[in-house]
Amino acid sequence: MDLHGKVHKFANDVNTDYIISGRHKFKTLDMKELAKHVMEDLDPEFYSKVTKGDFIVAGSNFGCGSSREQAPLAIINANVSAVIAKSFARIFYRNCINTGLPLIECNTDGIDEGDELEVDLGAGILHNLSKGTDIAITPLPAVMLKILNDGGLVEHFKKYGGFNFD
């Protein structure tokens, strides 16, 4: 799977309250509505700046804080194709795989706001087209790759009737 888009850059420790604030997420299960408020407290213009396929790029510990699955769902519905960070908090990491949002773990120091990226998930390489650099991606654990390839955990359960990692 190849992903292509431009970069919206954030710092370390982006928590799930910043991704989607509690003052919005309790109101509705309409993720298209929640998507309009993604990253609002860090950048009120974020939603309107995204072009389909763009990337959220951040430092370490992306997605720390609460267990809200509205975070990855709102990111998906904001037309972001993947989140790229140095490291992810673990509940957020699981939630992304379960809901089908690709996560890319790699060194993001050489990626800046507005850079154009192409990601080859199969080959595990991120091409920074603006800088002409290639960055290696940390591969996903096999269990997570299986769930992601099945289309998320709901689809995995529909297919196998439970967990099946054989």
Partner: peptide
């Protein structure tokens, strides 16, 4: 440990979850 809603659903259905 804390999980998201889909992991919770998997737990509700099967009484199991995968862990690292």
């Amino acid at each position: 440990t804390g999980v998201g809603s889909t992991d919770l659903a998997a737990g509700l259905v099967s009484g199991k979850l995968w862990f690292k």
